[in-house]
Amino acid sequence: MSEIAEKVKQIIVDKLGVEEADVTPEASFTNDLGADSLDTVELIMEFEKEFNTSIPDDKAESITTVGHAIAYLEDNVN
């Protein structure tokens, strides 16, 4: 697993209070990990802070699973 993927998983475990084993690439923040819309906004902000990047709103809206987040960040973070 990439370093980015590790960090993303850690942030999700920490913020959503879920078990690490549940944070699979297919897991949806809202359907599988119990996040509401505010939790999702907070996750995106945490990713921005951790990876020192800015995720535009239209991109943020399409990040709905763990896999989406990892893929987006791997593509956009050096």
Binding site: L38, V41, E42, M45, E48, K49, S54
Partner: peptide, 8 residues
């Protein structure tokens, strides 16, 4: 100056 207020 970039607003990064937590949603909570």
């Amino acid at each position: 100056g970039t607003p990064r207020f937590n949603p909570f």
